[in-house]
């Protein structure tokens, strides 16, 4: 079957690609566009390692088809830092040692950024429920919660 032509915007830049009907957005990002920062941990929407935004909405890229991104704005981990300056979430993940192996980190940062855009001052419980779709097997989440708390505080200008 012929491939589909998709015109989309990824991290602010116009991007066109050809994809098969059954290819997920995650496959397209990783295999067609070499944007390998989004990770596949489960391919079933259970681990959040492929968290991206589509028109500002947080989704698992493994549950979205590549063709569905047509005409949309896609945000991935590769677009979080601005030039050579890290986003406060990235900075606090480093300062607070919120990663061990680092495979879940891109998903957590994308998901946490999405939370803070909606709720700049979340409680610990709100953070924990928002991030419940992102699995981390290394940290026990403690330092991730600390990093998000500190990044939120910095983003609020405190």
């Amino acid at each position: 079957m012929a491939k589909h032509h998709v015109a989309t915007t990824i991290n602010g830049d116009p991007v066109e690609y050809l994809c098969d009907t059954e290819q997920t957005l995650l496959d397209v990002l990783r295999d067609n566009l070499q944007l390998t920062g989004s990770k596949e941990g489960c391919a079933s929407g259970d681990c959040g390692a492929c968290s991206v935004t589509i028109d500002g909405r947080l989704v698992c890229a493994c549950l979205v088809l590549g063709v569905e991104a047509d005409g949309c704005e896609v945000g991935t981990i590769e677009g979080i830092a601005e030039g050579d300056s890290l986003h406060p979430l990235q900075q606090h993940f480093l300062q607070d040692a919120a990663l061990q192996c680092g495979i879940c980190t891109p998903g957590f940062i994308v998901a946490a950024k999405s939370l803070l855009e909606r709720n700049p001052n979340p409680t610990e419980t709100e953070m924990r429920y928002w991030l419940a779709g992102n699995l981390c097997r290394c940290t026990g989440y403690d330092k991730i919660i600390t990093a998000v708390t500190n990044a939120a505080s910095e983003l609020r200008g405190e």
Binding site: L35, G37, E78, I80, G102, P106, I109
Partner: peptide, 23 residues
């Protein structure tokens, strides 16, 4: 002391290459 890990920036920006990232 608690310096920032040397491989940290690669891992918070999505640049780090894990097993499935090699092509």
């Amino acid at each position: 002391t608690r310096p920032i890990r040397p491989d940290g920036i690669e891992k918070v920006t999505g640049r780090a290459n894990f097993g499935a990232d090699c092509n």
